[in-house]
Amino acid sequence: MLQYVLKRLLLMIPTILGAAFIIFFILRVVPGDVCELKLGGDGGHYDPVQVEICQKNLGIDRPVYEQFGKFVVGIFTFDYGNSMDTGKPVTHEIGLRFQLSLQIAIMATLVTIIIAIPLGTISAVYQNSWIDYIVRTVSIAGIALPSFWLGILLLLFLLNFSDWMWGIRWSPPLIYKPIWEDPYHNVSQLIWPAVATGYRYSAVATRMTRSSMLEVLREDYVRTARAKGLLEKLIINRHALKNALLPVVTVIGIEFAFLMGGLVVTEQVFNLNGLGQLLVHSVTGKDYTMTQAIVMIIVLVFVFTNFMVDILYAWLDPRIRYS
């Protein structure tokens, strides 16, 4: 097992390096850099000398391999440098935004668990009944429903509903406060994007719960339990659900990493100052250091989650380890 873990761990290195390579070069393929962008504002006065000075200060004029080397070393030493745009350390810029995105991801996951596991189980137990069809339709619709559209409708509803109820138009707070500072403020801001994304997310998990339950329900030990005359409720709760949950947990794990990146669009709708919005800003603003850092963080989370899932599987299914 240890050998397998080590092997998988080593395999992560070329992946991370490759991803770093791709993002580094893709950013530099297209002409124009942060200096030209910043110093060529709406005013229309554009001074090439100033641009050169700026490029020099930021080190964009250095040879590409030198910049790349610095970046790669930075990935492994967690030194992402300063944002080329604001001049502040990247870690400082990312800090609170990461916290915000992480919290929405966690809340969306909770929404998912609350919705997906009961619905998926019911749907599987009553396979091909009307209730199954409804759950399946709703969950497929959930995957089809763009979260940004749901978000827009939610905001519209909040403004109009609050006006109708209390005569005052209410919209979610604009500024993020950590949950331990002001729980009401925090939740009233983040619950809406969590619902908008969690709804989609739960649709995926519901389907997975259902199909996983269906498989388990046909396993021999469930049949044996039935043959022994155990209560159906007991069989489902004690035996089936427990075993069916593993793939569901895996899905939730993988989706969690995905969710962090996928919040990009929802954050725009709800004006949330999260990682996704920062990525859009920095990639369009040609802030190389910042874009590289965010993408690498997302990649690291993604790769690491996949690694954990693999290890989990290998641990449960010894055949994988030796294949």
Partner: peptide, 21 residues
């Protein structure tokens, strides 16, 4: 004062409507 970032026009309008700004 507090200068709040709101890159989307719709968000800025909603902020004034909801008296967040």
């Amino acid at each position: 004062f507090r200068a709040i970032a709101a890159p989307k026009m719709a968000a800025r309008v909603q902020a004034i409507e909801g008296d967040r700004a």
